[in-house]
Simulated assay, not measured.
Amino acid sequence: LLPIAPSTETSGTFINIAGTAQTFKAAVRPLGETRPGWKVLRVLGNLLGLEGFEFNSSEEVLKAFLPANLAASLSNTIPEQTVAGVALSGNLELAAFAPIYDTDALVRRADSLRKTKAAKPALAQISTQTAGLLGVKSGDKIQLTDSEGGTLRAAVLVNKTIADNTVLVPMGRVDSQSLRTVFGGVTVEAVVASEVQA
């Protein structure tokens, strides 16, 4: 068990999806005897007699590992492709994600963050086209059945930013734990009003 400080107590650099390096400083000093992760790894490297662990600051680490031309070394471009139309017969691709305030022990325990809209994403989100093919609208109930036999009944949210033939479901939550997989195909069916009342 290593006494590593959280990101709020260390300096460092993230590289975002656009390939831009974003350097940050610690908001507060590490508590007690905790140390930034890079420092703990440096000491372990020193104890094991490994080369390349002589850094004294995160700035030195950045200078050693960040390419001179970062943008050229990273590419997020996707080659243009032609996609044939997909006939929808109640089968969708499951796209799972971890809600923003469920990813970290610090934010999971922040009451103020738990009350925000971002902390409670809809259980099932589909595109406008997919909703039309299924004959459902926002607020209607649908039932998902995954390849392992897990099921989830939830109100749907029609979201124009979701890819067609895909259903977006937040994972790692009590109300979605009935699904047994986090990717792959799912069968989707609309739940009629009589079934909802029952």
Score class of each variant (00 low, 15 high):
residue 127 S to A: 10
residue 36 P to F: 05
residue 94 L to H: 06
residue 45 G to S: 06
residue 66 L to D: 06
residue 95 A to W: 07
residue 4 I to S: 13
residue 43 V to S: 14
residue 66 L to W: 01
residue 197 Q to K: 13
residue 169 V to L: 07
residue 111 D to P: 04
residue 39 K to F: 12
residue 16 N to Y: 06
residue 155 A to T: 11
residue 51 E to R: 14
residue 75 S to W: 01
residue 75 S to Q: 10
residue 2 L to Q: 11
residue 9 E to D: 15
residue 168 L to M: 13
residue 154 A to R: 00
residue 68 A to Y: 06
residue 27 A to N: 08
residue 69 N to M: 04
residue 19 G to P: 02
residue 45 G to I: 01
residue 156 V to D: 07
residue 115 K to T: 11
residue 92 L to F: 10
residue 41 L to H: 07
residue 83 V to I: 13
residue 5 A to L: 02
residue 33 E to G: 08
residue 172 G to S: 02
residue 134 L to I: 03
residue 160 K to V: 09
residue 191 V to L: 11
residue 87 A to E: 14
residue 13 T to S: 07
residue 183 F to K: 11
residue 172 G to Y: 07
residue 55 F to P: 02
residue 196 V to F: 08
residue 196 V to C: 04
residue 120 K to N: 15
residue 128 T to I: 06
residue 15 I to N: 05
residue 34 T to S: 14
residue 39 K to E: 15
residue 24 F to M: 09
residue 134 L to D: 08
residue 3 P to M: 08
residue 94 L to R: 06
residue 104 D to S: 12
residue 103 T to F: 08
residue 26 A to R: 08
residue 187 T to Q: 13
residue 188 V to L: 07
residue 164 D to W: 00
residue 55 F to V: 02
residue 178 S to G: 10
residue 8 T to M: 12
residue 198 A to W: 01
residue 130 T to K: 02
residue 21 A to Q: 02
residue 77 T to Y: 08
residue 131 A to H: 02
residue 34 T to D: 09
residue 126 I to G: 03
residue 48 L to T: 04
residue 118 A to Q: 09
residue 185 G to L: 09
residue 4 I to L: 11
residue 1 L to P: 08
residue 21 A to R: 04
residue 190 A to M: 08
residue 169 V to E: 03
residue 125 Q to W: 03
residue 112 S to W: 12
residue 97 F to K: 01
residue 66 L to A: 07
residue 10 T to P: 03
residue 137 K to V: 08
residue 99 P to C: 07
residue 128 T to D: 13
residue 90 G to Y: 04
residue 93 E to Y: 09
residue 167 V to A: 07
residue 90 G to F: 08
residue 133 L to D: 08
residue 8 T to L: 14
residue 86 V to W: 06
residue 158 V to T: 10
residue 84 A to H: 12
residue 129 Q to T: 14
residue 117 K to G: 02
residue 184 G to T: 06
residue 168 L to N: 11
residue 194 S to N: 12
residue 59 E to S: 14
residue 9 E to Y: 05
